[in-house]
Design a protein around this nucleic acid. Structure first.
Lengths: 198, 198
DNA sequence: AGCCATTATGACTGGACAGTCAGTTTGATC
DNA sequence: GATCAAACTGACTGTCCAGTCATAATGGCT
């Protein structure tokens, strides 16, 4: 009885389609009909899987946000020195977004902003972001305690890393001016290592 | 004959009202009626001053974006050493946004994202952003040429500064966790100075 | 006071779109 | 191949809202 599995599969490809359309057109300019068309099904069918347009959006973003958080966490855990852990964090994120451009578009250009509007929308999403920042803060606190980096406020350092990483992502979307490449990532890492060195 | 001036004044307060509403509710959730109510006039009147909702939005953002760019430019011009110029850039921007919270909300949580969607919308806006980044790049190029900072790609450094500054703004909006204060700004400056030092 | 131009009003229209539901198809099971 | 539930369909409904326009108020001028 792979009924459950088949249903789950359909749900997934529906989310994939939704991501593609939301990334291309944005939330407000996307009709549920558009998602249906992209997924090759009728509008009514969508409502068998999700109760509302907003729920689709949230599910589409959250699925990737969870995977991204898991990836980062794993990469950091399997790295050694603080520089390597930091590098793992940033490179993993850059890499994840390279492999999931639709998610990148939604995440950077709309979703974060929507979370900042009053909307409760995404308690889990906020939690995932904070979790990532907390891991970084812990990394810095530990390294500082061991004297491997100078004494900085670990939270401030974590927020700064988070900002710089997000900046890397944004550059990838606005392709105003120069194309971006691995040297962008390495520059950020270099800046951080120099600024934090004991 | 202060006819022109009076009209301009009305246009301005209309934009002010629009900013307040857009900041509170976002573009999509704001009706032209809402703007009219906030401004204390009827909907039809709005169309005497602007041809469309989108035009209001654009004008509201652009007005502030121009002032911000002018402020930054002036502050950098009147500072001396590269550290001071950099500090002037960042502090001026933080300060401007502190004094124009509605603009901050719109800018950070929606407008940038909308520019990244395909929309032509805001050629001038993009130009203003690039201009700010170009000034930073020029600052770093000059300082590097004088041997005051180490040799870095000036554009990469400028983009990084831009990202970190924007990060400072974002933190002000998402008041998840700690409140933010001047120490956030000073930390960013400290990181940059250490990372760029010759 | 009477006149006209400028400015303002808000009921109205047309289109878009989220969500519904009565009916159709599918495919598993006997 | 008959039966039935689960999956699917798309025309339809009600709501919302940007933009219009016929009408009204304002205020400067003679």
């Amino acid at each position: 009885m792979n009924r459950k599995a088949a249903t789950e599969q359909r749900r997934c490809s529906l989310l994939q389609a939704a991501r593609a359309v939301f990334a291309r057109q944005g939330y407000a300019n996307t009709g549920v009909d558009d998602i249906a068309a992209q997924a090759g099904i009728a509008k009514g069918t969508i409502y068998l899987y999700f109760p509302s347009k907003e729920a689709i959006y949230l599910a589409a973003v959250l699925e990737d946000a969870r995977l991204l958080a898991a990836d980062s966490r794993a990469a950091m855990a399997s790295a050694g020195a603080w520089q390597e852990k930091l590098g793992a964090y940033i490179r993993t994120r850059v890499n994840y977004f390279e492999r999931h451009e639709d998610f990148l578009r939604i995440y950077i250009s709309e979703f974060r902003g929507m979370c900042m509007q009053g909307k409760p929308m995404a308690a889990e999403f906020i939690h995932l972001v904070q979790e990532g920042e907390a891991q970084l803060a812990q990394l810095f606190a530990a390294a500082a305690a061991r004297g491997e980096i100078r004494a900085v406020d670990p939270e401030l350092a974590a927020l700064t890393v988070s900002d710089m990483t997000r900046g890397l992502m944004e550059r990838r979307l606005r392709n105003w001016g120069r194309p971006i490449g691995p040297e962008d990532t390495e520059f950020v890492l270099d800046v951080l290592c120099r600024a934090l060195a004991a």
